[in-house]
Simulated assay, not measured.
Amino acid sequence: MRWLLAMVLTLVAVPASAQDKRIAFTFDDAPRRAGAFLTQDERVTRLIKALRKARVAQAAFFVNPGHIVPSDPGAAARIDAYVAAGHVIANHSFSHPSLTDVTADAYLADIDAAETWLRGRPGYRALFRYPQLNEGRADKAKRDAVRAGLAARGLRNGYVTIDGYDWALENLTVEAARAGKAMDREALRDLYVETHVEAAEYFDGLARATHGRSPAHVLLLHETDLAALYLPDLVKALRRKGWRVATVDDAYADPIAAEASRYDVRSSQGTLTEMLAWQKGLPAPRWYARNDPQVLGKLFATRVLKEGVE
Rank of each mutant, 00 (worst) to 15 (best):
265 V>T: 15
208 R>E: 01
161 T>M: 09
58 Q>W: 06
268 S>M: 09
240 R>W: 00
29 D>S: 12
219 L>P: 01
138 A>G: 07
142 K>G: 03
224 T>G: 06
287 W>T: 11
245 V>M: 13
236 K>D: 15
7 M>K: 15
285 P>S: 05
32 R>E: 03
203 F>Q: 04
202 Y>C: 06
255 P>F: 09
194 E>C: 01
194 E>V: 01
24 A>S: 13
290 R>H: 14
284 A>K: 12
34 A>K: 12
88 V>Q: 07
52 R>V: 01
151 A>S: 14
110 D>T: 05
209 A>E: 06
74 G>L: 12
117 W>R: 14
36 A>E: 10
168 A>K: 05
166 D>M: 02
182 A>F: 05
195 T>F: 11
220 L>I: 05
116 T>M: 06
192 Y>P: 06
262 R>I: 11
178 R>D: 14
75 A>K: 03
118 L>S: 14
237 A>Y: 10
221 L>D: 06
132 Q>H: 13
170 E>K: 02
244 R>F: 04
306 K>I: 01
54 A>I: 04
45 T>V: 09
266 R>F: 11
295 V>D: 12
216 A>Y: 09
125 R>F: 07
238 L>G: 05
63 V>S: 05
250 D>R: 04
188 L>I: 07
14 V>P: 00
259 E>T: 09
72 D>P: 05
185 R>C: 05
70 P>S: 08
25 F>P: 01
280 K>E: 15
276 L>A: 03
14 V>D: 00
128 F>D: 11
218 V>A: 10
198 E>W: 00
198 E>D: 15
244 R>T: 13
81 A>T: 09
112 D>S: 09
47 L>I: 07
22 R>S: 14
115 E>D: 15
195 T>P: 04
212 G>C: 07
210 T>M: 04
188 L>D: 11
120 G>W: 10
13 A>G: 01
274 E>Y: 02
36 A>R: 02
80 D>M: 02
56 V>F: 08
97 P>I: 08
178 R>N: 14
89 I>Y: 09
138 A>N: 11
15 P>W: 06
295 V>T: 14
143 R>D: 12
91 N>Y: 01
175 E>W: 02
77 A>Y: 01
20 D>L: 07
18 A>M: 11
49 K>Y: 00
190 D>R: 15
271 T>Y: 02
20 D>W: 00
8 V>K: 14
113 A>K: 14
162 I>F: 01
61 F>Q: 00
279 Q>F: 09
48 I>M: 07
56 V>S: 03
16 A>L: 02
112 D>F: 07
10 T>N: 05
66 G>Q: 10
45 T>S: 13
297 G>A: 08
115 E>G: 03
36 A>N: 06
86 G>L: 08
127 L>N: 12
108 L>P: 03
65 P>L: 11
143 R>L: 13
213 R>V: 10
250 D>Q: 13
43 R>G: 03
93 S>F: 03
128 F>G: 10
151 A>E: 12
145 A>L: 10
240 R>E: 15
235 V>P: 03
25 F>M: 15
288 Y>V: 02
260 A>T: 12
169 L>S: 06
68 I>M: 15
94 F>L: 04
208 R>Y: 04
287 W>V: 13
2 R>E: 11
149 G>R: 06
262 R>W: 00
108 L>M: 10
93 S>D: 04
80 D>T: 05
39 T>G: 15
